[in-house]
């Protein structure tokens, strides 16, 4: 069966109410988290909170890309913005400054992530379409990682350290030709000279 045919067949299949509701709510959660992350990057009073905000942007952007592909495949329309309640909650936080902002922001993120976890668990238990359930399963560990980070006040681990672009210190390509040339020439010289010395005059 062609992949295109499968996708067409999937798209034509109408999603259950549970699956549709999950797609819409999870998408708005992602949008709300991205907006929250941007607020932290702009307003945080410590580098810790700023980095926490950045990881929310990075991770929820990635999760939302996966989600939008599945929604597109099923012809589900997604809202362009977070819910009015989510927007109002963030506005209350961004009205604050300094350490008060950091604290209010953290509390809001903890509550939002707990709600997102509950949403995902409900989809896993009650959803029907395999690809929608898979979204919830993919997002769960990421959201949990964020929640643990926020509750413990720890810094996020970056997704990598790219500390070198010159290529001069590469090791797996071996040691180059020089040692082989040295050893080879050494063998030849040794053989010729050794043979010469062993001959009687």
């Amino acid at each position: 069966m062609l992949a295109g045919t499968t996708a067409y067949a999937q798209g034509q299949q109408e999603l259950s109410e549970q699956d549709q509701a999950f797609l819409v709510a999870a998408h708005q959660n992602n949008l709300a988290e991205i907006a929250s992350g941007e607020a932290a990057v702009d307003q945080a009073s410590t580098e810790l909170v700023r980095a926490q905000g950045q990881i929310l942007i990075t991770d929820h952007t990635m999760l939302d890309e996966s989600l939008r592909q599945v929604a597109d495949a099923h012809g589900v329309q997604l809202p362009a913005e977070p819910t009015a309640e989510q927007q109002a909650q963030l506005a209350d936080v961004t009205a604050q400054q300094g350490a008060a902002f950091d604290q209010a922001w953290t509390q809001l993120q903890i509550a939002a992530h707990q709600a997102a976890l509950t949403l995902g668990e409900q989809e896993i238990q009650q959803g029907t379409a395999a690809d929608v359930i898979a979204l919830a399963e993919e997002a769960g560990p990421v959201i949990q990682k964020h929640l643990t980070m926020l509750q413990s006040g720890d810094a996020p681990a970056p997704h990598g350290v790219h500390a070198g672009m010159g290529g001069h210190a590469a090791s797996a390509d071996g040691v180059g030709m020089l040692p082989w040339v040295l050893a080879g020439c050494g063998l030849v010289v040794l053989a010729v000279s050794g043979a010469a010395l062993r001959r009687r005059a």
């Binding site: 040691v175 020089l178 040692p179 082989w180 040339v181 040295l182 050893a183 080879g184 020439c185 050494g186 063998l187 030849v188 010289v189 040794l190 053989a191 010729v192 000279s193 050794g194 010469a196 010395l197």
Partner: peptide, 17 residues
């Protein structure tokens, strides 16, 4: 001298490898 040089080159190459 060739024997000595050959040994030295061989040793150098093998050490680096």
């Amino acid at each position: 001298a060739g024997v000595a040089a050959g040994i030295a080159m061989l040793a150098a190459g093998v050490t680096q490898l």
